[in-house]
Design a protein around this nucleic acid. Structure first.
Length: 822
RNA sequence: GCCGAUGUGGCGAAAUUGGUAGACGCACCAGACUCAAAAUCUGGCGUGGUUCACCCCACGUGCCGGUUCGACUCCGGCCAUCGGCACCA
């Protein structure tokens, strides 16, 4: 029996317990239904769920339930991105154990997720910080290492002093650490990298395959990869026999305008290139450059500086001898670290040349050319360029590079901005990098049978200035797996983004203790059909995962090219116009909402108002409104629970007008709601349709004596299924109370009849010269001639066309008639 | 500077893809019920004008222009906000 009023707390608790026991969401790998993989970006177990999580997982859950109802075998898993700095910081600040801290948080948040009513198969739960998972992260590292895709090198890397670790380029935002916002400096260190650059071209090209991704994310990735086409040109050094300086340029068409050459302060041959007289000023300049922070160094505002080295290059095209300068506007890690300077046609060179009185030569001309100003036009014509004079710049770029290639001092070159992914971290709470350093054998990976390399527990978090792993008295000293002699273990751990680059594959075979996953299962379930999460991972996680997929494919571990077929980046949850955050004090605790309104209200509200991709403004009034709506729906069923017929039957042809209209409304509701979910997951309009449909039903029952209970039952039972993906607790409660067995989750989606999914009457718009003059209620599906006749005969039409000539009449079936008069 | 997204009532938004602009909701206003309040139900709600009971007219989707019988929607040119990239040669 349904209560008269709706009490979410009792009802939700009841179904929480039943679902926990009966596991209706367990997935069957062997089902012969078509598969559908719905995935949310898994959470970091920070302590408590926030509204961003609620929004993310509710969207995915509704998608999963809808697809299930449509007959798919749906995989909807959940897990924990559970390595990372906050756990370690809690350890340092409060003396907590990172593992306990993390697992406690997981336990709490897991309960919160279950209370939200997610249709998750918890038997596939993945926790990246547990050895049964990170064993396979380590195994994958070793496979990458064997393939040459994981390597160690000494390089200038990003260092965050506050977090006391190195960072990947992707984790440096505007020169600052992505986590703690403190300034990042460069350090020369030996670190582990993944060779993501090996896949630059494919990562860029395959963006075209991702038709289910938004342009915003694709452009961000494309910008990040930063492909440019140009040439390498080699310049002989006049004073040093045999030494050449290669430069990378996208403007080989301007070679005849070179007047000097610039190398970065860290350029490798800089000592050789410096004459004894210039040694002192060059040393001084380089030392100053070293002191600059990344932010200062990369600022476009800064005045360019530099000093001459004293040596010169010979331009092979002109024979011209040009001085070599060191200047920090040249970057050591892009191109070759050296730049050919063409002041007339590059604004940076122009600024520099003006400051130091270096000569300029014009080699391109065009319409907008102004004497004495930098001219960067890429479409102009060449002048002062010997046999290339008169060519348009675009052609000249190819011809000049071709010429250089034939002469042996140049070649075509494609350059990418993307750098290799730095994955080692000097921190404790991560997967240990599974290698040892042997004085005889060098870098040796741990044999597979010895995995996992467990994180040591005997560590001291209070020691400053080094990784806690290094404080373990037992971890570091070991023996070489190859020769058995004394060796040292790597104490760095992996970036957490390594763990999250393959978790969605593990869900396909989460409990496998023999392999990272079975190949058939990963090929069966992946690619992910719908991935949903925040835009903040547009580059980081999504790019790394794409790289992992391609690398694992090339190792033969799987057979697809892209991990995520469709991507929905949901907007932020705002309160009072700004992002919910603890520091602003404008957060809303999901627990409070559960307690006061129930999870169904939270689910309904977070989907209402705004489309998923846009930001969503949380308001207390909005929550109230949704709660009222849920009660309004519930009352319909509690009022008619004795009258609702499970086996309703009626013949549409024999129905009264009023009853037929409700049947039509019902078909219209199915049609529109289905369409709105299928196209772009427009849940805000789905919820509008619920309300419209409920309003129609309330209209229908106004006259209690005129109710046809077969028709009403049809409407109410349809509404119940339509609303069930969103209001999961209430719909289940009503379903069971009405005497149905099992879970409404397993009930198929509703079908509709196209002929009945439209109104019997339409409003015909009558326009004269495109302006609305009248609206007529007419039967739908009338022939054009009939509509025309009706429109012409309408009294208002006559009034407006009187004394004028009808030039033409446009009829849009079921919509309008436009009469054009003169 | 380059690239992307967005721009519609007091607010969140909708618009069958070229055909009634503002569905649905929030807020607000009025009425019913009540001793009263809450809850619930009914109705109103873009701007201006004219009459002021209802009708009618003009304007209105960031701005300017174009195409069309008809434009939030298509085309051209701008502006603003947000986001990404950027001394990348």
């Amino acid at each position: 029996m349904l209560e008269k009023e709706y009490y979410p707390q009792q009802i939700e608790k009841k179904w929480f317990d039943i679902w926990e026991k009966e596991k209706p969401y367990k997935v069957d790998d062997d089902s012969d239904k078509p598969k559908y993989y719905a995935l949310s970006m898994f959470p970091y177990p920070s302590g408590k769920l926030h509204m961003g999580h609620v929004r993310n997982y509710t969207i995915t859950d509704v998608v999963a339930r809808f697809k299930k109802a449509q007959g798919y075998n749906v995989l909807h898993p959940m897990g924990w991105d559970s390595f990372g700095l906050p756990a370690e910081n809690a350890a340092i600040q409060h003396g907590a154990n990172p593992e306990k801290w993390t697992l406690d948080n997981i336990e709490y948040m897991k309960k919160q997720l279950k209370m939200l009513g997610l249709s998750v198969d918890w038997d596939r739960e993945v926790t990246t910080c547990l050895p049964d998972y990170y064993k396979w992260t380590q195994w994958l590292f070793i496979q990458l290492f064997k393939k040459g895709l994981a390597y160690k090198k000494t390089a200038p890397v990003n260092w965050c002093e506050n977090c006391h670790t190195v960072l990947a380029n992707e984790q440096v935002i505007d020169g600052k650490c992505w986590r703690c916002d403190s300034e990042v400096t460069k350090k020369n260190l030996s670190q582990w990298f993944f060779k993501i650059t090996e896949y630059s071209e494919e990562l860029l090209n395959d963006l075209n395959l991702l038709t289910g991704w938004g342009d915003n994310v694709k452009t961000m990735q494309s910008n990040w990869i930063g492909k440019s086409n140009g040439a390498i040109l080699k310049f002989k050094v006049k004073e040093l026999e045999g030494l050449e300086i290669p430069v990378y340029t996208t403007r080989p068409d301007t070679v005849y305008g070179i007047t000097y050459l610039v190398v970065a302060p860290e350029y490798k041959d800089i000592d050789k290139l410096t004459t004894p007289e210039n040694k002192e000023i060059v040393e001084q300049y380089r030392n100053n450059a070293k002191k600059l922070s990344e932010i200062e160094r990369l600022s476009t505002q800064r005045v360019k500086t530099g000093v001459p080295l004293g040596t010169h290059i010979i331009n092979p095209f002109t024979g011209r001898v040009c001085p070599i300068w060191v200047a920090d506007y040249a970057l050591v890690d892009y191109g070759t670290g050296a730049v050919m300077a063409v002041p007339y046609h590059d604004s940076r060179d122009f600024e520099f040349a003006k400051k130091y009185n270096l000569p300029m030569i014009q080699v391109i001309t065009g319409n907008d050319f102004k004497e004495g100003e930098c001219f960067e036009d890429k479409q102009g014509k060449l002048i002062n360029s010997a046999q290339f004079d008169g060519l348009c710049a675009e052609d000249a770029r190819d011809k000049i590079t071709q010429f250089a290639k034939e002469q042996g001092f140049g070649e075509f070159k494609t350059q990418y901005r993307l750098r290799d992914w730095l994955i080692s971290r000097q921190r404790y709470w991560g997967a240990p990098i599974p290698v040892v350093y042997c004085p005889k054998c060098g870098v040796v990976p741990i044999p597979e049978e010895d995995l996992p390399v467990l994180l040591p527990k005997d560590v001291d978090f209070s020691v400053k200035g080094k990784s806690p792993v290094e404080t373990s008295p037992t971890f570091r000293e070991t023996s070489c797996p190859v020769c058995g002699s004394k060796a040292q273990r790597e104490t760095d751990t992996m970036d957490t983004f390594v763990c999250s680059s393959w978790y969605y594959m593990r869900y396909s075979d989460a409990k496998n203790d023999k392999q990272c996953f079975n190949k058939d299962l990963v090929n069966k379930w992946l690619p992910v059909d719908q991935y949903i999460g925040g835009i903040e991972h547009a580059i980081l996680h999504l790019l790394y995962s794409r790289f992992f997929t391609k690398a694992l494919r090339d190792m033969g571990l799987l057979d697809f090219d892209e991990p995520f077929k469709n991507l929905l980046t949901q907007g932020m949850v705002l309160k009072d116009g700004s992002k919910m955050s603890k520091s602003k004090g404008n957060t809303v605790d999901p627990d409070d909402i559960y307690r006061n309104y129930g999870a169904d209200t939270a689910r309904l509200f977070i989907l209402s108002d705004s489309p998923p991709a846009r930001d969503f403004d949380w308001t207390d009034a909005g929550v109230d409104g949704c709660y009222k709506f849920i009660c309004r729906v519930y009352r319909l069923y509690s009022k008619f629970q004795d009258k609702i017929k499970k086996d309703y039957t009626f013949n549409f042809e024999n129905l009264d007008r009023k009853d037929a209209d409700l049947v039509r409304e019902t078909h219209i509701a199915i049609k529109k709601i289905t369409k709105d979910i299928e196209t772009e997951f427009q849940f805000n309009t789905v919820i509008s349709r619920y309300r419209e449909f409920v309003n129609s039903i309330y209209d229908y029952i106004k006259d209690e004596n005129a109710i046809n209970y077969d028709v009403l039952s049809f409407a109410l039972l349809t509404l119940l299924k339509l609303i069930s993906p969103v209001c999961v607790f209430m719909s289940q409660e009503i379903y069971s109370s009405l005497g149905f067995d099992g879970f409404i989750y397993n009930l198929p989606w509703c079908d509709y009849d196209e002929n009945l999914a439209k109104s019997a009457n339409i409003t015909l718009i009558v326009q004269v010269n495109g302006k609305i003059k009248d609206k007529l209620e007419v039967e739908s599906d009338l022939a054009d001639d009939n509509l025309k006749k009706l429109a012409m005969e309408a009294p208002k039409t006559k009034e407006f066309i009187q004394g004028k000539t009808v030039v033409k009449t446009i009829v849009v079936p079921n919509k309008l008639v436009n009469i054009v008069v003169k």
